[in-house]
């Protein structure tokens, strides 16, 4: 089971809310899909500028592996207050720890309504369709 302290999108982003802020990343499944377990297969990650306002579901970045370029989407709207710049130079962090050290951006939430998001169990169900 994936961590139950956060919510998910079917496009494999997670969001962990803490007070008025939230941290956003991508799941282990997304990393595995892009890299097939070979961390060298992840080649580039483009993150937004601090201060950018993100609408619900808006694309905030892009990640490339040798297999595909994929958009990164925000589960909830808000202003970007911090990015994990270490990721851009050390993509292996995503493979090592997608749930904690592999966070991508922090946002100040404009809306905390998680009713449209998936909990861990619902996200697991969506993954079943990938097998």
């Amino acid at each position: 089971m994936r961590p139950t302290d956060r919510h998910y999108l079917s496009s494999h982003e997670w969001i962990k809310i803490s007070g008025d802020n939230a941290v956003i990343g991508i799941t282990d499944f997304a990393v595995e899909e892009l890299s097939s377990g070979n961390e060298g297969d992840l080649v580039y990650c483009d993150l937004p500028e601090v201060g950018r306002n993100l609408e619900e579901s808006e694309t905030f970045g892009e990640i490339e592996s040798v297999k595909a370029v994929s958009d990164l989407n925000t589960p909830l709207p808000g202003e970007v207050v911090e990015i994990n710049s270490a990721i851009e130079d050390h993509l292996e962090i995503l493979s090592d720890d997608p749930w904690d050290r592999g966070w991508l951006i922090k946002i100040r939430l404009a809306d905390k309504d998680t009713s449209k998001l998936l909990d861990a169990a619902a996200y697991e169900e969506t993954l079943a369709s990938h097998s």
């Binding site: 040798v66 297999k67 595909a68 370029v69 994929s70």
Partner: peptide, 27 residues
């Protein structure tokens, strides 16, 4: 000039270039 295990080859050379973009549940 760069290959992966899934690439299509003949005569020990890569013969098909292939790349994907994934967005909004589409490819």
């Amino acid at each position: 000039h760069k290959s992966t295990p899934q690439d299509l080859v003949w005569e020990n050379r890569k013969g098909v270039g292939s790349a994907q973009r994934r967005r909004n549940g589409r490819v």
